[in-house]
Design a protein around this nucleic acid. Structure first.
Lengths: 325, 325
DNA sequence: CTGTTAGCGCCTTCAC
DNA sequence: GTGAAGGCGCTAACAG
């Protein structure tokens, strides 16, 4: 079914139908009503691809998520998707995976769909090859990166001040009299580097020794790493973990050894994901304000898309949520 | 940039460029090479919308998710998205929310994008109004519903045998000597009704009294409901919950009252979501095989799209994962 | 082997 | 106020 089928049945021409569909003025009320009746009869929906072709507007935006396994990011994608849909944009959400090589391919895919804008979720998108791919394939549509930086004229950033947030978290523990605070790191991303810096800065300012331990970023990985630290007899009375899931691994290791939280040991995760509230004991966590950050991404994109001004870099301040650890 | 720009620079006609792009045979090797060089120079990607217009193939499928708050479903959407992308299909993932009224609008939206197929995730899509909307807007593309039923010639179902699974879970507890097993229900969905039936059947077969208690499906809601049950002095030594998050609320209530699991009370959740493994103590759960189910949805859709035969109804057998509760 | 022509479904001049 | 014609970027059929 096309507008011409509608036109025939309403006894008008295709362009009249088009005008009615698009609410253009200058049409006889009678005619309009007649066309609308036929439209309603079939509950007709025009082919968006065809209309995009002529109006040069696909009505679509792309959302790239770096890691599907990170539910945190997925949630952000959904928040953005929902906000964009409210403004009439359809989203193509793609999970690019960690594979840095294939990333450019996803940018190209978005370009082939002629998206009007894009949001990249995750600091790992802030790399030179992504920058090059955007320059090549999406040079003239706004690109918003969540939690990362991109040095491009069409790029916008919305970042959480993770360094400052972690600094605050470490200071909090220090103030509570903790001495031996270790930092459980995650995968090697720009975002995690920021957090680590915040920890190191806070510890050095307080004249305490730093202790950064790497993990593979998984619950089980963190659990075994932290378990062996506890079993080694090393003194630890505070933990800050790069993400909640790592903190939960540590929490479990402590729990298994009957350590009381937060008396014997205090653990703080990062992200304040749903996990935090659900763990036992409830995990204290640095809230990086995912939903606020996602909303800001959508707002920024919408602003630029609407021809309005937008901040080149928006900063979200994390806040500490103290629960039972 | 269009294929004509490429054509001009390569000194050929548009159709030749089109042929090269689509790997059509019957082109002089020299010419092909020349065109490819220009294509590569600009890393050109053809407008998929325009291509879809003529080839009558949008290359897109739609994925509707009923409830964004259910991370479980979102994960399923991603698995499907990924599989479809491997086969060259782009997904439009939409979060329809619980609002049954607006659902039809989403179906229409997919229709306007001329999707080649759709996957509806969640039993709540198995309603007459959705059926009508599909009949009206997507009468001739395959629609796969995950965990629900749709009585339509173009519909396919992939369902987990939740009734059987819950029956097995209840039987397991009964075999372990539990007498007072209560069932914590969730929201009113067809899927939850199935589960409840499994519980009731198992209890009746064993000659035990049933006790179904409603919750609002949230962690906190379940926690307070179950807490008051425990505090009322009612005897409970077993719990089956409609979803893991409810089970975790119950778990926490038990934990707060120093009940030992599984000695004093045994709790089994449903879905075996990531939460289950991460909770303390680790939650036993009925694995409804989300990833297997999602994969089956994608496979079914791909099969029909590829002109192959596909099961009208595929059934996935859940399995019990016993952990620490 | 390659170019020309027509048309996918829609919108936008431009006449009438 | 309305219709006819042309074109968006691309592919398919038909010539040559």
């Amino acid at each position: 079914m096309t507008i011409y089928d509608i036109a025939k049945e309403a006894g008008v021409s295709g362009s009249t139908v088009s005008r009615v569909i698009n609410n253009r003025p200058g049409i006889n009320a009678e005619t309009r009503k007649r066309v609308q009746a036929v439209l309603a009869k079939y509950d007709y929906s025009p082919d968006e691809a065809a209309r995009g072709l002529v109006s040069r507007n696909s009505g679509m935006i792309g959302i790239l998520v770096s890691d599907i396994r990170n539910l945190h990011y997925i949630e952000g994608a959904y928040i953005i998707e929902e906000k964009m849909l409210e403004s009439g944009y359809c989203s193509i959400i793609l999970n690019t995976g960690d594979d840095s090589g294939g990333r450019a391919g996803y940018i190209k895919l978005l370009a082939s769909r002629r998206v009007k804008g894009a949001v990249l979720i995750g600091s790992s998108f802030g790399t030179p090859d992504i920058e090059a791919a955007i320059q090549l394939h999406l040079p003239s549509v706004p690109v918003v990166i969540a939690n990362g930086r991109l040095d491009l004229p069409n790029a916008y950033s919305v970042v959480a001040d993770e360094r400052g947030g972690v600094h605050e978290a470490a200071s909090y523990l220090l103030k509570k009299g903790r001495k031996d605070i270790i930092y459980l790191d995650g995968l090697d991303t720009p975002s995690n580097a920021e957090k680590r810096c915040g920890y190191i800065a806070a510890m050095e300012e307080a004249g305490q020794a730093c202790r950064v331990v790497g993990t593979d970023g998984t619950y089980h990985g963190a659990l075994s790493v932290f378990a062996s630290i506890l079993d080694s007899g090393e003194r630890v009375d505070g933990v800050i973990a790069a993400v909640d899931i790592i903190a939960m691994g540590a929490e479990r290791a402590a729990y298994d050894r009957a350590l009381r939280m937060p008396d014997d040991i205090s653990i703080i995760g990062i992200d304040n994901s749903p996990y935090a509230e659900l763990s036992t004991p409830r995990l204290s966590s640095l809230d990086t304000k995912l939903s606020q950050l996602s909303t800001a991404c959508a707002d920024t994109l919408l602003a630029v898309l609407g021809g309005r001004e937008a901040e080149r870099v928006s900063i979200i301040r994390p806040s500490l949520v103290i629960r039972e650890t």
